[in-house]
Design a protein around this nucleic acid. Structure first.
Lengths: 348, 348
DNA sequence: TATTGATGCGGGAACGGTCCCGCACAAGAC
DNA sequence: GTCTTGTGCGGGACCGTTCCCGCATCAATA
């Protein structure tokens, strides 16, 4: 593109470049660059003159050129496996929303920016983005996307265990302990028929939690009673709950492992003439702060997305800084906040 | 950096470049580039050979170099003025969350990715990011950040009116009509003492809405009764509501213009022995779908963030594609969803 | 057989910065 | 007066692509 073209192509004025400033100031681009960056050996006068000229001309360095020279992008991609049908709605999930913004904040504190990617992205979509690493939330078990990224030399951080692959960093949750803490709590409140509303997907989260549920029931000689949601989102979970409450005698307790807005679950129970917690105990897996303010307040199992983000980003950022690609992982605990919805007031 | 250095500097293997593939395939980098991009005049054999070699070596083009050559970044920054104290918590607001993800989706459909920026970002923070444009949500009136971006030649899209500055694109809401629709509705239900819980900030939204409220009250000879929240977020709004209900006789109606989770507002009223809607009518400005499922369902004023995003991104993307920097704007309507919380069942 | 045109591929500039190094000059040491 | 050391600035390679050309080769045409 020659000088004339720079004029004609756009109505916008052409960006002023380093050479333009240098020419105007009667200096070399090397000198101007050093002056602006505070590097090199320059007299105070020349430095000031270069800076003043740049300011006057409205010069702004081309970030892309800088990054090319620097050899890194300082950009981290974020994507989520869930919500495949509505690629972007994952921000509606309090869990993913919290994971997203905590991650973004930590990245930025370390000089990285975070870019939102569509979750169902084929390789072509993000291939033009200069990302240094990718965060993949809620991956499937042995997610092929992880291998795609790693094969491309892009480190990956997931919130599910990814064993021993170079550049793979994971944070894991002790799903078995989490599931048992909920079930034990409900059992202690006298529940015998505990319905599990589980997310229907290929995530380790769903699979390992279901295993624990079945094992726990087996150990106690209780018949498992689980339903799976068709897809993520409030609607599907509510539909599953509605169906469970429609068929046969109502259960003692409901545990919504699939993420759902707590007050909506109370609503469904009420629609079937069931009062929480008098007729049915309720525990939701949710990060929604509204849970503490429902009537009654709802017991929640929190996956602690902020803790997951903190642990994972520490691993990832360390790796990016050091260039060390040894895979690593951490396990973070969950938290059960017991509230009125799962406390039996009167034994019947 | 010579060949040896590429080895030593990082534990990770050096990225394979186009020249590496070319050398391995016995071709020139021009030819390999053309082969991979499907351009140029090449025999089918050479094209296949180049592709196969690239695949075998795990070649992935350097996105930064591509962008430098292409002259654009295809990256759009997103930031929000609210929530200054907690720079990232803006994703907790359903309004901003919806605006964020709708924007991201639209951007990506047009080949742009969206990067999350901290809202209080000084120029230094994002200066290293190759953004083609910036979206500034909830700007202050005459926000200086807008001028900063425009001065740097970066187009800006805001969800508030920004008049006549080159590169400025805005979507605006008829705050007066929105405010009056709510007040008229409440008045029609018999409310005389309508408390407005307004966001305390410098946004046009707050200022113009307050003007409308005062005008409406003036026209009817009603004494205005407004309280301002100290900062964004549920806690501050609930505190304001709590204080209003503590002092003097309870009002007929509450209109929370500041964004708040609807069930929490019901809760506050109940804490003061007030039933919604029997004792006090309630309207919330909220995008939270939970509003339709509370007990009672809560009337909401929706700012329609998805519509805002759609209109604004159309303007912005058109401008980016055409290079035309003529400022432009649109006005989108709000929506009032009347539910039980603002319907007086029995006149007293 | 010379001329044309199409075909297949490569050389090298360009994108806009950063940074290594070298050169000129001045000042101090012996 | 030479030798060293330090200072101030500029030349030009380099990051990894894309793309404009130009140079061969070869078939078709006159």
């Amino acid at each position: 593109m020659n000088e004339r073209d720079r004029r004609v192509r756009h109505a916008a004025p052409p960006r002023v470049r380093l050479v333009d400033v240098a020419r105007e100031a009667g200096l070399s681009k090397t000198t101007v660059s050093a002056a602006l960056n505070g590097t090199g050996r320059l007299s105070a006068e020349v430095r000031a003159h270069a800076r003043e000229t740049a300011r006057r001309m409205g010069y702004r360095p081309n970030a892309t050129a800088r990054l090319l020279r620097a050899g890194h992008a300082r950009l981290i991609g974020f994507t989520a496996r869930e919500y495949v049908e509505a690629p972007w709605s994952y921000l509606e999930s309090p869990y993913l929303s919290e994971l997203t913004h905590t991650t973004a904040q930590l990245a930025l504190e370390h000089g990285y920016a975070m870019v939102l990617l569509p979750n169902c992205s084929p390789r072509d979509e993000w291939t033009d983005l200069p990302v240094d690493a990718v965060i993949l939330a809620d991956p499937e078990a042995d997610d092929p996307l992880v291998d795609d990224f790693l094969a491309a030399g892009i480190p990956v951080f997931t919130d599910q265990r990814v064993e021993g692959r170079q550049g793979g960093y994971w944070v894991d949750i002790d799903y078995d302990a989490a599931m048992r803490s909920v079930l034990d709590h409900l059992a202690a409140q006298g529940a015998r028929d505990i319905v599990l509303i589980a997310p229907q997907n290929d995530s380790q989260w769903a699979q390992r939690s279901m295993d624990s549920y079945l094992a726990w029931c087996g150990e106690r000689g209780i018949a498992p009673h689980a339903v799976a949601t068709q897809r993520p989102g409030n609607a599907a979970v509510l539909k599953a709950a509605d169906e469970v409450l429609s068929e046969g005698p109502p259960p003692d307790a409901l545990f919504a492992l699939a993420e759902v807005s707590p007050p909506l679950m109370i609503d469904v129970a009420r629609k079937h003439g069931l009062s929480v917690p008098d007729d049915v105990l309720l525990v939701c897996c949710s990060e929604d702060p509204v849970a503490a303010h429902c009537a009654p307040p709802v017991t929640t199992l929190s996956m602690q997305p902020s803790a997951i983000a903190a642990a994972g980003m520490e691993l990832l950022l360390d790796a990016l800084e050091s260039g060390n690609v040894e895979p690593a992982g951490r396990v973070v605990p969950t938290r059960l906040d017991v509230r009125a919805s799962s406390l039996r007031k009167t034994r019947e």
